[in-house]
Amino acid sequence: MIRRILSKVVASVAVVVAAASATFLAQLAVPGDRATALMNLQTGQDKKWTAQELAPLNAKYGFDDPIVVQYLHYVTGLFRGDLGTSYTQKRPVAEVIGGQLLPSVTLTVAALAVAWLLALGVTLLTVKRGRILSSLGSAWEALTASLPHYWVGVVLLVVFAVQLRVFPIIGGTSAWGTVLPVLTLAIPLAGFLGQVTRDEFTQVLEQPFVTTARTRGMSDLGVRLRHVLRHAVLPAITLSGWALGALISGAVIAENIFGRPGIGQVLVTAVNTRDLPTVSGIVLVVAAVYVVANLLVDLAYAVVDPRLAR
């Protein structure tokens, strides 16, 4: 087990370094001279600058150094927590991102939890509970799983914030204002997780040990909770690591709809102003979070299925 985890850790570091290489290449791929683009961005002008005028920028950002030196500087910087300097804000990217990380993490973690609750609730209540309930459940899952985040968000906003005025339109980071963004992310994910657990649940309900439990006189709900659930959630746990990617993408959109501070807001602004160090920094932080989350999924798997811990 420890060996497996160690090799996973090594692979994870490799993935982050590779991601860093990709973002480094992206920064090089910007058409035109970087120093000129930067100068125009900072002064709001659009012209050719002389070599003397560009020299301080070139020196500051090291644009004159050989590519290999720049690359090594960039990658080693990452391990010191240095993500480069934002072109537009002229502050370290780590600082720009750092302050916005918490609201985004809160949003995604809450959404993952709510999605699991919704998915398990629907599964427990509707699988093999007669034809109508079953097909209602799976229709609901198929529908919600294919809804784009932005549409769910807009519908929730219009119905609950604009028409019914239950929730604030611009929620900020207050708990009450977090409800709609969380649901925006959780509803499509719950549909997706539900489809997977439903298939498993149906199969497990036909296993001999379920019949055994029933003959012991266990109640239907008891069988579902104690014996079936544990088996049925395994594949969905694996998918939760994958789901995080969808959640992060969704968070960018939800933060934008509900005017919620967070990484998504910073990201969209940075893409609009073509502030590549900031975009790259966010991409890397997210890649790192994603990798760590998948490690945790591996551990969770071992907890739910003790056979894997050996």
């Binding site: 991601a19 990709a22 992206a26 993408s249 893409v271 590549l276 966010i282 997210v286 994603y290």
Partner: peptide
């Protein structure tokens, strides 16, 4: 295969946004 795995590990929206940041919308 390894490169694909890395690209796969990226939430694809971010990959797309990186492309937009480089090229402009």
């Amino acid at each position: 295969t390894r490169v694909l795995e890395v690209a796969f590990a990226f939430p694809a929206l971010l990959l797309a946004l990186l492309v937009i940041a480089v090229r402009g919308p």
